[in-house]
Amino acid sequence: MRFIIRRLLQSLIVVFGVSIIAFGMLFMTGDPTEILLGNGADHMTVAQIQDFRVKMGFDRPWYVQYASFVGKAVQGDFGYSFVRHEPAYEVIMDKMPATIQLASVAFVLSLLVSIPLGVLSAMRPHKPIDRIATVLALIGQSIPSFWLGILLILLFGVQLKWLPISGSGSWQHIIMPAITLAAFPIARNMRLTRSSMLDFMQRDFVRTARAKGISETRVVYAHVLRNSLLPLVTSIGLEAGFLLGGSVITETIFGWPGVGREIVSAIGSKDFNVVQAGVIMLALIFAGVNLIIDLAYSWIDPRIRYDT
């Protein structure tokens, strides 16, 4: 219980930090009034500009502005989108399901591919299957996602015409974005599973397990794999952030109607309220996922569960 409360507090600190950065973004780029008005300011009088500044509350000290920002944000009020003229919160939440869908599919895909491949590699180190997996992992880790996305589009979309290039709507639409997004986590988790398995394979308790006469399959899955998952779980927690953050690029390439693409277009149109709402909501989800991962960790490792 103590453990959960501590983790919850840590998550709050993370979200608090993100909110400061999201809030600060507006000021770091210059005078928010001028940025928001842009070229429009040329046609306005000084008094009109000052009116706008007062109306937006930019004349108050920054900490007052931040307090009011947080106060409203807690209630889901991030102000209005200047472009769409609807609440920024709703603009983001409209897109959230698509982002979560893409991230989830990519997440499941990454685990389904990386763990079995990692186990296979570890079972036959330095044999052909391991070598092939190693090369694939190297490619997966080094290729930038925008480039992989474009390659996939050229091959399966333009050349072979098997899959739709852009947009959403059918299950075929999600395949290429999900692969693009999952490529890096697949590669990393596979290597991690492999090295972790190889490490645990040498442990004394695995020798004990073999000495009991249980099948090699049980030795690998009940003893080695379960222990090997511990370092993997930590990596998966960080991956949640990667999948959410990475969606910004992937969604833009594939025209996937998610939060990431919305944030990119909002940045383009200086729609800061939407950017802030998007960043903070993603941070909240990220913190939530990490919390769940930590709980999973304590479930897998009894030493943590009982020590606290």
């Binding site: 442990r203 308790f205 020798r207 397990a209 003893h223 030493r303």
Partner: peptide, 10 residues
């Protein structure tokens, strides 16, 4: 070594 010869998570 009884410390390392038992599976810690089982």
């Amino acid at each position: 070594d009884p410390m390392t010869s038992l599976n810690p998570v089982m």
